[in-house]
Structures are given as C-alpha cells and as structure tokens.
Simulated assay, not measured.
Amino acid sequence: MAKFVCAFLLILAMAFVIQVTHAGGEGSLRPEQCSGECNRRCSQTMYKNRCLEFCNLCCAKCLCVPSGFYGHKEECPCYNNWKTNGGKPKCP
C-alpha cells in the first residue's frame, strides 16, 4: 500500500511539473497581460507597429502569446489557427 501511495504522489508531482512547464499555453493570460507579452514578442521585428496591432488582437481573443520572438505557435492553437480571409496566418 505504501508503494502505491508513493507512486501516486510521484505521478501527481510530475503532472504538476508538466503543467507549470507548459504555462503560457492557450488561455493562460489575463487580458491586461497581453500588452506586455506582445511587446516582448514583437520587440525584434522591423514591423513592430503592425506586429503589435495583430498580436494584441490575437491575444485578446486567445489569451495566449507564444514564447520567443518568432514561431512556437503550436503552444497556442487559437493563435496559430486564426487566418486572414486570404488564408494566411493572422497572428504574428
């Protein structure tokens, strides 16, 4: 029985670590955090104003901004899958 309890606690701890590691996923932000996260995401682009405009729009809808300055969109499916009328990615 003690082994079962130890195994259960270990699994529970691992699940918590995995959840914390993947923080930043879809729905993880509050609306007031979007501006700061978009400033971070768009800080290295030469099209900063346009990036910020669309990033903030996407964040307001998805409550998520992918990590890094480019890519990693798989972290936020809503952010990744939102397309323009022409079928191109809407979110930077």
Rank of each mutant, 00 (worst) to 15 (best):
N81H: 04
L63T: 13
G36V: 15
T21H: 09
G36Y: 15
C59F: 15
E53L: 09
S67P: 11
C58D: 02
C78G: 08
G71E: 02
M1I: 11
V17D: 04
H22Y: 05
A2N: 10
K90D: 00
P77Y: 12
C62K: 00
L12K: 08
C38V: 13
L57Q: 10
Y79A: 09
C91W: 04
C51W: 02
L63Q: 08
C76E: 03
H22E: 05
G24R: 12
A13M: 15
N81K: 15
L52N: 00
C59E: 06
G27H: 12
I18V: 14
H22A: 05
V65K: 08
N49G: 04
K3F: 08
C78P: 07
F69S: 06
S28Q: 06
K48L: 05
T45F: 02
C62F: 09
Q33D: 10
C51L: 02
G24S: 07
Y70S: 01
K73Q: 11
N56D: 12
C76Q: 05
A15E: 01
S67Y: 07
E75G: 03
F54S: 01
N56Y: 14
V20I: 13
G25E: 12
T45N: 02
E74M: 12
C76M: 09
L29E: 08
K88R: 10
K73D: 00
S67R: 15
F54D: 03
H72N: 04
Q33S: 11
K61D: 14
G68M: 03
I11A: 06
A60S: 13
E75S: 09
E75H: 15
M14L: 10
R50T: 01
G25M: 07
F54Q: 06
F54N: 06
R30I: 14
F8K: 09
K61N: 15
A60R: 07
N81P: 10
G27S: 12
A7L: 03
K48G: 04
F8A: 14
N81T: 12
K88H: 05
R50V: 04
W82M: 05
S28E: 05
P77F: 12
C91N: 03
C58W: 03
V5I: 13
V5K: 05
F8I: 13
G25C: 13
P66N: 13
S43K: 08
C62W: 01
C6S: 12
N80K: 05
C64E: 00
N39D: 02
F54E: 03
C34K: 07
L52R: 00
G25Y: 07
S28F: 06
P31C: 05
V17Q: 08
E75Q: 07
G68I: 11
G25L: 11
G27Q: 15
S35K: 15
C76R: 06
A7H: 02
E32P: 10
G36F: 09
L9T: 07
E53G: 01
N56K: 14
P77D: 09
E53Q: 04
F4T: 11
M1L: 09
Y47D: 03
G24F: 11
P92K: 05
E37C: 08
C76H: 05
S67C: 13
R40M: 10
R30K: 15
K88E: 15
P92W: 02
E37A: 10
G86L: 06
V17L: 06
C91K: 04
R50P: 00
T84H: 00
E37N: 14
A60Y: 12
C64K: 01
K83Y: 04
C55D: 01
F54H: 08
V20Y: 06
A7G: 01
C91T: 07
F16T: 14
K83E: 02
